[in-house]
């Protein structure tokens, strides 16, 4: 696995909620991203996607496990090293209304990175760089003196992207970056992100719950359920041959714009509620809702195992299927 740009191994983050109650937000997650590629991370609300993403920016310190970015372990670094990390890893946020400080002008929002890192010290250099960033994201220089509340959601998201690009990072964590936008704007923003990836050789961790958008942008896809990865592999493999019952359920819930297919297609409806992430039961976390559950599933948590290529799945029931496919 060496040589990968981002390597996360056995990442664990437990939050203490109340007395003797532990919320296992991220429980033993491992993945890697190659330089210049995109990993899509999908899963429902509260499954720990954002927590994983925030670890990469060192907003959270992991309890266990290692995070290596460009070969350097960042899991327990000092505050000064965090500042250096900021030049490598940046983040784009979900809510374009909450992610911009309403007391700053757009120019101040984008230029804050320069103040913090003492770059572009002269007024003119700074202004030119801010103008350049605004133009890259499709806004114009005169927007620099306005305040965030004067912009629409899509424009605000562009400002957020300009801020993330200010330090010319190599990895960008897109934390639900398009979920709060309407569909036509989503397409613009995603295409812009793809364009930047090509021109600036960016690496993305693309966190989303919109499966079709992830399929569009991601090279690899990881599916998370209640703090653990349940399936992980090349996007085509995960979407083409979903192995985990949860992935199957998710994919079958994606609506298609084809009424004939929609009528003939039987949706897999997942029953029950997501089980409680506080002090979880032993065994597979999907056990309570799984239609293929066996006795073993309630006792032992299934590890991630390879089922061909780099396609991995954490499910006891998938073993035979792997056999079926290979025969």
């Amino acid at each position: 696995m060496d040589g990968k740009f981002v390597e996360v191994s056995n990442l664990k983050k437990y939050f203490h909620v109340g007395k003797r109650q532990i919320l296992k937000a991220v429980d033993d997650v491992s993945f890697s991203i190659e330089r210049g590629s995109t990993l899509g991370l999908v899963g429902e609300s509260g499954c720990g996607k954002t927590t994983v993403g925030r670890h990469l920016c060192r907003i959270y310190e992991p309890d266990e496990g290692a995070i290596r970015i460009d070969g350097r372990d960042i899991s327990h670094i000092s505050q000064r090293q965090c500042r250096e990390l900021a030049k490598k890893v940046q983040m784009i946020f979900q809510d374009p209304y909450a992610s911009l400080n309403s007391f700053f002008t757009v120019g101040e929002i984008i230029g804050e990175a320069f103040t913090i890192h003492k770059m572009f010290r002269s007024v003119k250099e700074r202004r030119d760089r801010i103008r350049e960033l605004l133009e890259i994201v499709g806004l114009s220089a005169e927007h620099a003196n306005r305040f965030p509340h004067e912009f629409s959601g899509g424009q605000r998201q562009r400002i957020g992207i300009a801020r993330a690009l200010a330090l010319s990072p190599e990895l960008i964590v897109c934390d639900e970056a398009i979920s709060a936008l309407d569909v036509s704007i989503q397409a613009q923003i995603v295409n812009m992100l793809i364009e930047f990836q090509r021109t600036m050789n960016l690496t993305y961790l693309f966190i989303a719950h919109d499966l079709s958008m992830v399929r569009h942008i991601a090279d690899d896809t990881a599916v998370m359920y209640l703090g653990a990865l349940v399936e992980y592999g090349a996007t085509d493999a995960v979407y083409g041959h979903p192995a985990h019952p949860y992935t199957k359920g998710l994919l079958s819930a994606v609506p298609t714009p084809d009424p004939v297919y929609e009528r003939s297609h039987r949706r897999i409806v997942m029953e029950g509620e997501v089980s409680d992430p506080i002090n979880p039961e032993p065994g597979c976390r999907f056990y309570a809702r799984c239609r293929e559950a066996e006795k073993l599933c309630g006792e032992v948590a299934p590890p991630l195992k390879k089922i061909g290529g780099n396609h991995m799945v954490a499910c006891h029931a998938c073993k035979e299927k792997e056999g079926e496919r290979s025969t």
């Binding site: 940046q90 983040m91 946020f93 909450a98 992610s99 804050e112 913090i116 801020r163």
Partner: peptide, 26 residues
């Protein structure tokens, strides 16, 4: 834990800067 504060942390802002430039004006 608002997103604009998280984003300032991601940019490498110090606690002092976050408290006085971002949170207090609000």
């Amino acid at each position: 834990n608002r997103e604009f504060v998280i984003s300032a942390r991601t940019l490498g802002a110090s606690s002092f800067r976050i408290i006085f430039r971002h949170i207090l004006p609000n």
